[in-house]
Every structure is written in C-alpha cells, then in structure tokens.
Amino acid sequence: MKIEALLLSVRLALCVSAILIAIGVPLAYGLAYSRWRGKFLLEAIVALPLVLPPTVLGFYMLLAMGPRGALGKLWYAAFGHGLAFTFAGLVIASVLYSLPFAVQPLVASFETVDSKLLDASAVLGAGSLRTFRRIILPLSVPGIITALVLSFAHTLGEFGVVLMVGGNLSGVTRTVSIDIYDRAQSLDYAGANRTALLLLVISFLVLSAVYGANRRAGRRAWAPWPLR
C-alpha cells in the first residue's frame, strides 16, 4: 500500500470538506429559508452530482480547467500555471462533486429548527445573522457533523472525477482509489486488496458514526441512504 496515496486522499478530503462547509452553510441557509420562486433550479443544480456519472462532471470540469476553458484561463492569469492535473484542480472538481453531500444534510438540519424559535429570536430583538449564529447553527450541530463526515468520506472514495481532472501523477493527483485501480490493472491484487480493505473499513466506520450520531440526536439528519 502506498502511504503517499492515502495521505494525498486524506489531505484532499480535508480540504474539500472544509471548503464545502464554508460554502455549503450559506448555500443551505438560502435553500432552507429563501422564498425565491426559482429556488428549485438551485436545488436541482446542487443535487446534480448525485445522478450524473462522475465522468460527465469530470469531463466538463476538465474542459473548463483546460488552457482554453474559462476557469483554466482565469487560474493561469492569477497564478501563472494551468489548473488541470494539479491538486488545486482536484480540490475544485471534488468540491463540486461532493456538494450535495454537504448541502443536503445542512438544508435538512436547518429546516428542522422550529420556526417558532426563529420568531421568538426576532421578537427578542435579534436580526437574522444573530438568530442564525445563536439559534440555527447550535441546533444544527448534528447536521453539520453529518455534512462534514459525508463530504470527507465521499471525497476520500471518489474515482471518476479524479481520474478525469487529475490524471495519475504520484504525490500530486494519485489518490487511493486511483492507486487501487492502478494495482488491479497491473495484477498486483494483494496490494490492491490492502488499500481497498482499508478504504472499506474507513467508509464503514464513517457511516456508522453518522447514523449513530443521528440516532443519538433523536432525529434523522439527512443521510445518503434513507434508513428507518
């Protein structure tokens, strides 16, 4: 097993989950509370990675990040090098790919906050920012943890998008899942098995933690599989 690949995956997953919380929280707040009519379009866009083959997303991301793509040009202007086949490119693509896994539990969690508590906060003189900080956020901790864990786990295990956007550069873009694929291709089944087993165990532990936390919280925040 290549420790380098595992470390890269973990680093990627950490970056992606941190970014996802940062952009997911305001996005989820908008989706949960806005009365905008076109909201369903945004909801559909956020959920798109759930149904889209990773290769489709990866393909378009690759085009966008390429030297002729808008994102690639912008990146080149800012940093003097391209975006495709770099760690940063991988992060951007993964953020998009894991977006629903962060946003949906957050929306579900914000929506379960009793609206009367928000009304009470308002009549006690709090504006929407204070209400969010003091009431919604603390009451959504299980949802935030779910969002963090799921985006971490989902990024850790992604393959298609990584392959399309990152390729297979050791230490830069070769993540565990790519590593497993590589080994299986070169008939190193024992090596592939060690990494695969590790990924399986990590994923299982992560999901157990999420479901366990939801169970303890007394209500079910969003999880990728609707369990009773």
Binding site: D114, K116, D119, A120, S121, A122, V123, L124, G125, A126
Partner: peptide, 17 residues
C-alpha cells in the same frame, strides 16, 4: 421589522431555546 418593534410575544409553544 419585528426585532425593532419592542413588542414582546409569548407563544403557545413558549419557544424557549
């Protein structure tokens, strides 16, 4: 807006945090 009306309101559910 409600936060500036200086009107106190106790709901039936009380809505304690």
């Amino acid at each position: 807006p409600p936060q500036s009306r200086q009107i106190a309101y106790v709901f039936q559910s009380l809505a304690l945090f």
